[in-house]
Design a protein around this nucleic acid. Structure first.
Length: 114
DNA sequence: AGCATGACTAGGC
DNA sequence: AGCCTAGCCATGC
């Protein structure tokens, strides 16, 4: 069954995993990217929490540079929405290069200090 | 309080 | 190297 998508953000909500994800992603500098699993580990959660990170990005507010989060293979995560091109365009605008298969060289563009 | 969901990952073939 | 499968975790209903 498809669950309804509610934006969980509430101004006075207590610190949740989501809000901590946002706080971290906001620190990712221009022209760099991080993976979902990387974010999870940085928050002290196991790599398996990467799915939840992805879920958090789905509901991310505009103040979060969601386009700088990619999957462990350096690809833009596929999703039901049509945000693929928007994310790719934003990254390219920041100088991130994509190879012929649309993959990013994580060794070069990944933000090491997550 | 319990269960289905998903912008993920690691491991096998 | 590329495709498929089975875990995993926070959230929402």
């Amino acid at each position: 069954m498809k669950s309804q998508l509610h934006i969980p953000l509430r101004p006075s909500a207590p610190p949740t995993f989501f809000s901590r994800v946002y706080a971290l992603v906001r620190r990712v500098p221009r022209g760099r990217v991080v993976t979902y699993g990387q974010v999870a580990r940085a928050l002290g959660a196991p790599p398996s929490a990467a799915r939840t990170v992805g879920w958090a990005m789905r509901a991310s507010p505009d103040s979060v540079p969601w386009h700088r989060v990619v999957n462990a293979r350096g690809e833009i995560a596929q999703r039901p929405t049509t945000g693929y091109h928007a994310q790719r365009a934003r990254l390219k605008a920041e100088g991130v290069r994509f190879d012929r298969k649309g993959k990013i060289n994580l060794g070069k563009y990944a933000w090491k200090r997550a």
